[in-house]
Design a protein around this nucleic acid. Structure first.
Length: 811
RNA sequence: GCCGGGGUGGCGGAACCGGUCAGACGCGCUCGACUUAAAAUCGGGUGGCCCUCGGGCCGUGAGGGUUCGACUCCCUCCCCCGGCACCA
């Protein structure tokens, strides 16, 4: 192909590899480490997207999230900021292990092969990534420090081991965190989750529950994500009240958010799994419990009817010494509150339903002021404006006063106290699988749980022959590895064979990026203090109650351990939507799946990058269509042509005409859309408008300025073609050029359209000089023949003037 | 049920603080130019209804309201998506 033709046609295959090579040679996007002691400043910025799991190929979701991050990082760099924008691999986890099981091979080989392939795809899209900081969770030089951090958590009692009922996935043969169970099913494979009692490792996430809620107000995160976290943590205010069961010699605590209704309690309920239930000597109760426990959680939740059985026991209501029959019922959950409730059927819907079914009394104790006490047996929802009735010495108090007074009365007598309850559970992170970070402890008959000394890290994941999960961790079969000596006494000991949840790896990876090569510590404080916390984090909202809570927990814990200087890891978070291809119905079996590699091959990286952000608002789900990408190719070609036309015609001067004004308005719009509004689609539309206008008058004064502006503004989205056209325009190194600056005086049109309304209806539009003083607008409007026709000689009752925009006459 | 987000042309979407006949930008469709022809490209048109071709009326899920003026604010309701769900 001769040079002439190359100049005339847009050829992504030629220009994209060319510029990718230049950036690599120039180390254009490598973030230099800060010099010792250099302080973090306003112009330091850490831009990060959630690191990918290295599955075989990229998908369009990756294209969206990393292009988004790319636009932000280019934009910030060109606005004079020093940008850290790294990439790494969340490379431990089940898919590689499952692939090893079904196809043979080692998860490590599969993972590393995938990394090579996915990285090469990423490079072809031309993302501005600092590849010199690449890290991977599965490498010993990374997981050594995951283990090291675990040991610090263990020392600080932020990690502990206990037996507890856990979510068990029968298919993946492993424990799942609560966060990984959706609708009673395994989030990953969809199997129905079972409950098992196992010894497990936990992180004490609940210790930070209050702070996790409280510091949300510092975060610039989408409301939906914060709402999800708030609900997940589920803090509720109430009281713990002790009910004595004399026959068992026990004080049984219950949690209630309605201590004001204590006088309305008419029975008492224990969860079927409650420890006290085991002590009951009744065939009827044992039989009921067996059936209730056998039901899986999902079935129990879906059950239409609440069921239960009377135990023959009575519990004493501490406020009036009434004897309440004790029932065992499946609607009470063991793992919330204390696993027992006081039942107030008049003021709790569930208790009411149960009371109706088993014909238990319903006693109203809260009623509207001055109103009638509801008919006995009715259910009444709570209202803050109601007062206590039939409540002994507390009768007549308002509901909030009653709450306070009753709790105070209980507290004085040691019968209860104000407390809060959480829905959040501690994070169980033991996994009975192979491809994860080994937990660095040993079990010794004499010394119990003994941490592996720091000097012996990493505990290297040994090779095993058989990854097939059998309910015990595959590592248990590596007998030589398992047998070790106790670091404390030197006697025989066995290694922990469970591995860590991969969310542990991803709870601290963003810190490691600041000091990726450190082999003496997980990180040094200086580079971390310089870059962290992450200023702009981007990823899927599906991680709202998993990764995004775990990482926040880690930041707080690491800060308390004195290891980092921040307590929130991600100041701003943007949650991107899902990408579907042609209405989700693409499938491998139909052979109509087109991946990013083929699209880049077919259309070029720039049109793909542009289109993924042009489809719609990036926070919404979107649908990729073939037709849409072709439109984007047309736009890039039009830009290409327009720039060459402008260069050939050599329009004189920057001009102050409409084209230059349009360019300045576009700068303002694009800057605001990218920098403040996260409105990536409308920024592209604005540049399209500008290019369309240049195309209509490529020889007009200001055309050259407008063309340069268009190329400069589109660079974060389409860096290859922008760089190429920048050289056509006679410049170089666009990626490090300052972002265009708006001339405020150029934002207005030379003339503007004055809208004239009569009674709010548009009746005429007048083109007037932009500089027309406001007080002349009315007389100009009145001069309009059309307007006079509508006024019909009448004097306007009222005249509204919006400067520079409209005049409205009200008759 | 509770919490969060939405309902705008044939389609994706725009309208940012209540103010330029709502519909930017793009897709699709359509007419035209170029071509032997097609593709590509370029130019015009494209919310609905009526029309004497000047324009008129209606129109942002439904119904009310506030306002000179409402896609935008308030009330009532319907529908869709996401999260949680016997959480006491």
């Amino acid at each position: 192909m001769d040079p002439e033709t190359m100049m005339e046609r847009y050829e992504p295959r030629l220009i994209e590899p060319k510029w990718q090579r230049v950036w690599e040679d120039e180390r254009a996007f490598s973030a230099a480490s800060p010099s010792p002691g250099s302080p973090r400043s306003e112009t330091t910025t850490y831009v990060l997207e959630m690191w990918p799991y290295p599955s075989g190929t990229l998908h369009m979701g990756h294209v969206l999230v990393y292009t988004l991050g790319d636009v932000i990082s280019h934009f910030r760099r060109r606005n004079g900021m020093r940008v850290l924008r790294p990439m790494g691999w969340d490379s431990f986890g089940l898919p590689a292990e499952n692939a090893a099981i079904s196809e043979g091979g080692h998860p490590r080989e599969i993972t590393e092969r995938n990394i090579v392939s996915i990285k090469s795809s990423m490079k072809k899209i031309g993302w501005a990534i600092d590849w010199e900081r690449e890290i991977a969770a599965h490498l010993p030089e990374y997981y050594r420090w995951t283990q090291w951090l675990f040991l610090r958590f263990l020392e600080a009692d932020l990690a502990y081991r206990k037996e507890s009922p856990v979510n068990w996935c029968p298919r993946d043969q492993t424990v799942l965190a609560n966060e990984q169970v959706k609708d009673g099913r395994c989030e990953r494979c969809g199997s129905e989750v079972e409950s098992r009692k196992l010894e497990q490792w936990f992180f004490r996430t609940t210790k930070y529950a209050d702070e996790l809620l409280e510091s949300m107000k510092e975060l610039e995160w989408p409301a939906r994500v914060l709402a999800m976290q708030r609900h997940w943590i589920g803090r509720s205010e109430g009281a713990e009240v002790k009910f004595r069961i004399e026959q068992l010699g026990e004080d049984v605590p219950v949690f209630t958010t309605r201590p004001d209704t204590l006088f309305g309690a008419t029975f008492f309920v224990l969860a079927p799994e409650h420890p006290l239930v085991e002590r009951l000597d009744s065939d009827e109760v044992r039989d009921y419990v067996r059936r209730a426990v056998a039901k899986r959680a999902a079935e129990r939740a879906a059950a239409a009817e609440k069921t239960g059985v009377f135990t023959g026991l009575y519990a004493t209501n501490p406020v009036n010494d009434e004897q309440l029959p004790v029932w065992v019922a499946d609607y009470v959950l063991l793992d919330y509150g204390s696993g027992a409730v006081m039942a107030v059927p008049a003021h709790d819907e569930r208790d009411h339903e149960f009371a109706r079914r088993y014909d238990l009394p319903v006693r109203t104790v809260v009623a509207p002021v001055g109103g009638d006490v509801p008919v006995s047996g009715a259910f009444s929802a709570h209202s803050e404006s109601e007062v206590l009735v039939d409540s002994g010495a507390f009768t007549g108090l308002s509901a909030p006063e009653g709450k306070e007074a009753i709790v105070a009365w209980l507290a004085e007598r040691g019968l209860g106290e104000a407390t809060t309850n959480l829905r959040l559970r501690d994070w169980g992170f033991s996994r009975q699988r192979y491809w994860g970070c080994p937990i660095p402890v040993v079990y010794c008959d004499t010394d119990g749980i003994v941490p592996v000394p720091d000097a012996e890290l990493p505990v290297v994941l040994p090779d095993v022959d058989d990854y097939l999960p059998r309910g015990q961790a595959p590592l248990a079969s590596a007998e030589e590895w398992v047998q070790t000596s106790c670091p404390a006494c030197g006697g025989p000991a066995r290694r922990e064979v469970d591995t860590m949840d991969t969310f542990v790896d991803s709870s601290w990876y963003f810190i490691r990026f600041c000091d990726p090569g450190n082999d003496g510590a997980p990180w040094d404080r200086a580079p971390v203090d310089f870059w962290c916390p992450v200023d702009q984090y981007t990823g899927g909202v599906d991680h709202a109650t998993m990764h995004l809570i775990y990482a926040r927990f880690f930041a707080k814990a690491l800060n308390d351990l004195g290891l980092v200087g921040f307590r929130e890891p991600f100041r701003r978070f943007f949650g991107n939507g899902w990408v579907q291809m042609d209405g989700t119905k693409m499938s491998k079996s139909k052979g109509n799946v087109i991946g990013p590699d083929e699209l880049v091959e077919l259309y070029g990286a720039d049109p793909v990058r542009l289109y993924i952000l042009f489809i719609g608002p990036a926070e919404q789900d979107m649908d990729w269509t073939e037709g849409g990408i072709e439109g984007m190719t047309r736009f890039v070609r039009r830009l290409w042509r327009v720039v060459h036309e402008v260069v050939a015609l050599e329009p004189v001067g920057s001009g102050d005409g409409e084209l230059a004004r349009k360019a300045h308005r576009t700068i303002a719009k694009v800057t605001d859309d990218i920098g403040r509004r996260y409105s990536f689609n409308t920024a592209i539309a604005a540049v399209m408008e500008l290019v369309n206008e240049i195309g209509r008058a490529p020889d007009a004064p200001g055309a050259r300025f407008a063309a340069e502006t268009a190329v400069s503004l589109i660079q974060p989205y389409a860096p290859h073609v922008a760089e190429e056209l920048w050289t056509v325009l006679g410049h170089e190194r666009l990626w490090e050029q300052a972002w265009p600056v708006v001339d405020e005086t150029m934002l207005e049109h030379e003339t503007l359209e004055l809208v004239v309304q009569v009674n709010g209806k548009l009746r005429d539009r007048l083109r007037i000089p932009a500089a027309t003083p406001d007080d002349e607008l009315v007389s100009l409007a009145l001069a309009s023949a059309k307007v006079r026709a509508y006024l019909n000689g009448a004097e306007p009752r009222k005249t509204i003037v919006v400067p520079g925009k409209l005049v409205n006459f009200v008759l």
